[in-house]
């Protein structure tokens, strides 16, 4: 444990503490170190509409994308749990979107959403579902949704695979007993299967929510936060503040606020897990 702790301390612990220190200064990225400014950075951030807007965009992105991934993932797991020909091939395919590098995924969807030559517009118009080509990433009403779809497509396989493993952990006799008792499919899912899914799903939910809250790559490549900052998440905002505008101090404060939000989310979910686990056993 000691070497790992040492490495983590030096490569994570120290930068983190330094970030805390920076967050109380007006340091610039390049050039002279900053002066101590107390909580001024934090005050400015909490008073800024840009921050709150990014906060809500990030929350919306995280909540909706994870929700879609979980629902889709569980449905796909239930499907792949059934017996049919080609099931194993489908299971193998499931790994593909997950293995695709995030940046390539973002590029791929940017090309699909292209307003003039994109496949989505072409498909919808040629099948008559849409009258005219649309600007998916240029319209604040659709840009975030478009990003969420791209993100969910890549990440639902993870939830599906975890759920599938959990399904296989359900003892056969319990399922058989439920069938004998004449429970219909829905109540069988609700009372027999679901309890086995909740734990693993919660873990997946936490992991994905933390990831989604930190989102940077896919947005950077697809919209860079536009149009009109409607997809500017907190990580993008931190990048802009600390690196584009070179305000390392307030960038650090902002990053710490993001960290705090992620931690609180994770703790809340963990409490939920403990509660649901306690209720079950």
């Amino acid at each position: 444990m000691v070497p790992l702790l040492l490495v983590m301390l030096s490569v994570i612990g120290w930068p983190f503490i330094d970030t805390v220190r920076l967050s109380f200064t007006d340091a610039r990225l390049v050039g002279a170190g900053g002066d101590f400014v107390g909580a001024a950075n934090y005050q400015r951030i909490f008073a800024s509409t840009a921050f709150w807007r990014a906060f809500f965009v990030t929350t919306e992105f995280a909540v909706v994308s994870v929700f879609v991934e979980v629902v889709l993932g569980v449905l796909v797991a239930l499907l792949l749990y059934q017996n049919f020909r080609g099931r194993n091939i489908l299971r193998a395919l499931l790994i593909l979107p997950w293995a695709l590098p995030t940046v390539v995924n973002a590029l791929l969807w940017r090309l699909i959403y292209n307003p003039e030559y994109g496949a989505l517009n072409a498909m919808l118009v040629q099948t008559g579902l849409l009258d005219d080509y649309r600007s998916w990433l240029g319209d604040p009403n659709s840009a975030l949704v478009a990003l969420i779809i791209a993100d969910a497509w890549k990440n639902f396989p993870l939830v599906a695979l975890i759920s599938l493993a959990a399904l296989h952990a359900v003892p056969h006799d319990i399922k058989a007993a439920a069938v004998v008792d004449g429970a219909n499919a829905l109540s069988r899912f609700r009372y027999v299967i679901l309890p086995y899914l909740v734990g693993p799903l919660m873990v997946a939910l936490i992991l994905r929510t933390i990831e989604a809250f930190k989102v940077f790559d896919i947005i950077w490549v697809m919209t860079r936060g536009g149009p009109a900052n409607s997809t500017r998440t907190l990580s993008i905002l931190v990048y802009q503040e600390a690196f584009s505008f070179q305000r390392a101090g307030s960038g650090a404060s902002l990053a710490l606020i993001v960290t705090l939000a992620v931690t609180m989310l994770a703790v809340a979910y963990a409490a939920l897990i403990r509660k649901s686990a306690g209720a079950r056993f």
């Binding site: 307003p115 003039e116 600007s135 990433l137 240029g138 149009p227």
Partner: peptide, 11 residues
């Protein structure tokens, strides 16, 4: 062109 709002020079 309404797509102008997501265009750079190359587009």
């Amino acid at each position: 062109n309404p797509n102008s709002k997501e265009y750079l020079e190359e587009d």
